[in-house]
């Protein structure tokens, strides 16, 4: 599916709405498509999440690098800290016309504050700022509440939201009804903001056939794979490499 994304894609939104999963999925999808089409494309993913301590996109850096994606994240042990650090190379990478960049921003207005510190270079680049929404998350009771969060995110990031990603899910328990129920709220929010719904996230393992017929007002569907889950649930994070045996045994 060609989403025709701009060169710099910034994912923001309420805490825990799925920005990291989407950033990883979009970056992987972009490079895979480029490879299929025989294109030389530099793809980078920048993790500027200064809020959540676990399940950050930097934890998937090995898988991302293996796929040919440059990961911009705090170096070394600092990557495992809860310090509000942004990698120095980010500011220089954003203006580079040869790099397709996905920016994974921390949730809520507090997370968007980190984005505010690089808003000048983002603003100057061909970019889109996408608001990711999952209606099953707390504090998503009303359109007004979401709009208030969106307004605060714009204020903190010094950037304007240009689109919405409807990403309502319940992990493995997601049904098609959930997706459509979430889309209702996303439509309301998008319409109030005067921006399009850029895509609808649907869990990859949702085997119910998508009855979403591609009508004229149906946004593109993005199948979302879940990377950010503990190793024992099949995720890529918080699990040492298979052969890292306990040192003394």
């Amino acid at each position: 599916m060609d989403l025709d994304l701009r060169r710099v894609v910034v994912l923001t939104g309420p805490y825990g709405s799925g920005k990291t999963e989407l950033a990883i999925g979009l970056a992987l999808g972009t490079i895979e498509r480029a490879k299929r089409e025989g294109q030389q494309l530099r793809v980078a993913l920048a993790d500027i999440d200064v809020l959540k301590p676990y399940f950050r996109s930097r934890e998937a850096k090995d898988q991302l690098r293996e796929a040919g994606i440059a990961v911009i994240a705090p170096p070394g042990g600092l990557a495992n800290s809860d310090l509000p650090i942004m990698a120095a190379e980010l500011r220089g990478t954003i203006p580079r016309e040869d790099v397709t960049l996905f920016l994974d921003v921390g949730g809520d207005p507090v997370g968007a504050r980190a984005l505010g510190s690089i808003s000048d270079v983002v603003q100057a680049a061909a970019h889109e700022l996408l608001l990711v929404l999952n209606r099953y998350r707390p504090f998503m009771d009303s359109c007004e509440q979401v709009l208030e969060t969106a307004r605060q995110i714009e204020q903190a990031s010094h950037l304007a939201i240009t689109g919405v990603i409807s990403n309502t899910h319940m992990l493995e328990a997601t049904t098609l009804q959930d997706v459509l129920w979430g889309l209702e709220l996303s439509r309301e929010v998008a319409s109030a903001l005067g921006v399009p719904i850029r895509m609808v996230g649907v869990p990859e393992d949702l085997d119910q056939d998508l009855q979403m017929k591609p009508t004229s007002d149906m946004p593109p569907v993005l199948r979302v794979r879940r990377f950010m889950k503990p190793g024992f649930l099949g995720g890529v994070v918080l699990a040492p490499a298979a052969e890292s045996a306990r040192p003394q045994s």
Binding site: Y136, P138, H169, M170, Q177, D178
Partner: peptide, 17 residues
């Protein structure tokens, strides 16, 4: 869709409970 069902982090869920 009942709002009583939510997708939460353990920490958030502990606080709400």
């Amino acid at each position: 869709m009942a709002q009583e069902r939510l997708l939460m982090k353990g920490t958030e869920a502990i606080a709400e409970a």
